[in-house]
Design a protein around this nucleic acid. Structure first.
Lengths: 340, 340
DNA sequence: CTGAAAGCGCTTACAG
DNA sequence: CTGAAAGCGCTTACAG
């Protein structure tokens, strides 16, 4: 049973003032005398008054809630982004409603609709891998500010906060070239995926700029870029006659599968085959040899997305359409370079 | 700029009916004729009507929002619990607001207050490690259903969903005894922590029931139970004259630190020293040797907590006060038992 | 079967 | 400097 909560009305009765005056006093309105203000504020504190955000939001068409949709909350990188979102939002007085799309486009649209129903002030989204139709998403944009992060899309005209995926991948490949690797394989995603496409583009550009021929036979695409697939694809790569001398797996977990398989075959890492992943997940320092990878600033990404979101919420006229790129950072470890 | 949304009023005007009738038709009220109902529902669909949950909730004193407070969203186990919470809540038509306490008791109280301000229908919480004062929490209980999960407290009279921590630890220690270990160290937490206390209790009971003397010298307490501390404490354990032949670290990350240090000193695992962790995190299968640990059903814990929560929300008279224990599952791997 | 009216807790233009 | 009143979008007891 909910206890009776103190409302403006109650405070008004207690002090023999009108509800309007109480409201103004609590909001520090310039019209109200200081003596009244302190009187009201004291009583409010004493009676543990908490404004009813719903009534307020309902009245002002503002809820101070930001909706967030991510494919999978249990991915470590995603959870660090969420941490950044929560922290920044909390600082600015916003609450966050989180939903998972589970990489299901239909569910994603559903979530978007519910978010609208909850009158969120804005939506932050990392789009599902299988989002082919963006029509549903575009329709939402009309009603409420939307900002995409991490898994973005150039088909959607809105602000986007991403990692410099292409450049990071480029740097990774260049590092492999610098240590003398000449035949560099990539394990990427099959389905259209923003991250995969961008990293693949960086891979291609690096090879081209260094005049290394591109060989389709060592460009491997998989459905889901998992540890298990990393293992399977390594078996495949080892079976071709002209083996690669380096493998760039576009996620850490796949890269770890690669390492585990190479170790099974007693292939020397990095001498025979070097490996690079992407994400700097915790695992990348636990696998032996430790994995060279690209660190992504998750918390900063989340905080940045929230900042731009609040900007748009508070200035509804200039809806943004810029892409903010945060820098990934190549972390060189034993899987590409032996210190000793 | 928000587009004009369709309200009951608009539908009413369009159809020359009253707002009351529209409301009833949409809610499938028995009083309304079928013909009116279909007419209204068709137009609503056509005009893309979405009810304003705030007006509704405001009116009915119900928001269909569940508040969730956790110490740290980036802990893998926590994120799996959240996944379960999100899924179950979504199925039942509830949204979830998530906040992090960062193990800060003051912030935790703040979060509780904000949750109340947002009129959440109920609060699900995993309490911060440093919660000494539960007064603030107890005050909240009066206003809204509260259920604790994972990090619980017997000082708070409310339903709690936890793992059978004590029994799981007991099983872990018994397993060590079964493989012939006689001098079993534990690395646990210093500060009061529900999980640590329960696991420690299981450790003590197992030793007692198997008539193994308890030796304070190999009962190690640390401030934060991290990988780094796992390493440091292993150094300490190796420095004492009568070394342990097994180490139970109450988290996987600490256990991994233990393994890494033992490997550095070329100590054979599990022959010389066996190791058990707790959580079955992803890391536990990547470290070599793979870690024996206790698997905790995170998603099920989250879903269970939500189920009981909705129960309490919908039957405000019988506030629960039971403890639901989910079973952890000992997963035996190479760090305690060599298959070959 | 349908409608008019009150009210949820708040803010704000208007009046004094 | 303060108050009375309208209204945000909805539901529901009351009336017919």
């Amino acid at each position: 049973m909910k206890k009776e909560t103190t409302s403006l009305k109650k405070l008004a009765q207690e002090l023999n003032l009108s509800v309007s005056t109480i409201s103004r006093a609590l909001n520090d309105h310039p019209d109200i005398s200081d003596s009244t203000k302190t009187k009201v504020q004291k009583l409010a504190a004493k009676l543990n008054y908490v404004p009813n955000i719903f009534a307020k939001g309902f009245r002002q068409h503002k809820t101070n809630i930001i909706g967030v949709i991510v494919p999978n909350i249990t991915h470590y990188f995603t959870s660090t982004i969420l941490k950044g979102i929560l922290e920044e939002a909390s600082l600015k007085g916003y609450r966050v409603i989180i939903s998972e799309s589970n990489n299901d486009a239909v569910k994603q649209t559903e979530m978007l609709k519910t978010m609208l129903q909850f009158n969120v002030d804005g939506i932050l989204m990392s789009i599902s891998k299988v989002t082919r139709q963006v029509d549903d998403i575009l329709r939402i944009i009309d009603n409420v500010p939307l900002i995409l992060f991490d898994k973005a899309s150039n088909k959607i005209p809105c602000s986007q906060v991403v990692i410099n995926e292409e450049e990071s991948a480029y740097n990774a490949i260049e590092h492999l070239i610098n240590i003398g690797k000449k035949r560099i394989a990539i394990i990427k995603e099959n389905e259209y995926s923003y991250n995969s496409e961008r990293r693949y583009a960086g891979y291609l550009r690096a090879l081209k700029e260094h005049n290394i021929p591109i060989d389709e036979k060592i460009i491997i695409s998989v459905d889901d870029i998992s540890l298990r697939q990393g293992k399977r694809m390594t078996n495949l790569l080892l079976s071709i006659k002209n083996k690669p001398d380096a493998i760039f797996a576009i996620t850490d977990s796949a890269a770890i599968g690669v390492i585990q398989t190479l170790k099974k075959f007693n292939i020397k890492i990095p001498e025979e085959i070097a490996i690079i992943g992407f994400s700097n997940s915790i695992n990348s320092t636990i696998i032996e040899p430790m994995l060279t990878t690209i660190d992504q600033p998750g918390e900063r990404m989340g905080a940045t997305a929230v900042k731009y979101m609040i900007e748009e919420i508070e200035n509804p006229n200039d809806i943004g359409n810029k892409t903010i790129e945060l820098k990934g950072n190549l972390i060189i470890r034993d899987s590409t370079f032996k210190a000793s």
